[in-house]
Design a protein around this nucleic acid. Structure first.
Ligand SMILES: [Mg+2]
Ligand SMILES: [Mg+2]
Length: 195
RNA sequence: ACAU
DNA sequence: CTATGT
């Protein structure tokens, strides 16, 4: 394998940051700097894009994907969730309202419902969620709901959660589950628009 | 603090 | 303002 020569260097963290033309300049900008981050690129255009990519406003994803979201009333404890296709805006599924839930239970069930639907459709597209908590529960295949432990959640929902966790145990899935960056991209399409 |  | 979570 022929090695390509580096034509430019990006320094993200260093004494100075930016795109440099030579390894010597890159060294000057980074040596002795704790936690320096830098990388060489085979073209200046590539380097500029890489440096730029961190500073420019990230663009919301487009294309075929499923977005999910939950809504929950902290006073009445009513919970619902839905899935909306990113590319068409059409509703893929909608569940609830169900009494005595939580925001996080809704966000978690929405993801698993989406995964099951995509599996049934043979669709390997990604799922977007705005919930860091639900993503953590999904990774562990376990809904760590404090309210369930404290007995504040409806029995029917606890059963739904058990089914969701079991589905995750028994069903491999190809879909990526990705974070929707609300701050950069605006509300997720599946949002209920109640805030 | 961050994410809902 | 209240509530659910890492
Ligand atoms: Mg949400
Ligand atoms: Mg929402």
């Amino acid at each position: 394998m022929a090695k390509k020569k580096n034509a430019a260097y990006v320094v993200w963290k260093g004494h100075k940051t930016g795109v440099f033309d030579t390894w010597a300049q890159c060294q000057q900008a980074t040596s002795g700097y704790a936690g320096a981050q830098f990388k060489g690129f085979t073209s200046k255009a590539e380097a500029l894009a890489a440096f730029n990519g961190e500073l420019s406003t990230p663009k919301a994803p487009t294309g075929h994907a499923l977005t999910v979201d939950a809504a929950w009333n902290s006073v009445g404890k009513d919970m619902e969730y839905q899935g909306v296709w990113l590319d068409t805006g059409e509703t893929a599924f909608r569940v609830g309202p169900i009494a005595d839930g939580t925001n996080n239970i809704g966000e978690f069930l929405a993801i698993v419902h989406g995964l099951a639907l995509l599996k049934q459709l043979g669709d390997d597209c990604p799922i977007y969620t705005d919930s860091a908590t639900a993503m953590a529960w999904l990774r562990k295949k376990k809904a760590n709901s404090q309210n369930v432990k404290e007995g504040r959640v409806d029995a029917k929902l606890i059963e739904l959660l058990a089914r969701a966790e079991l589905w995750l145990q028994e069903n491999p899935y190809p879909n990526k589950v990705l974070k929707w960056h609300t701050k950069d991209w605006g509300e997720i399409p599946a949002d209920f628009g109640r805030k």
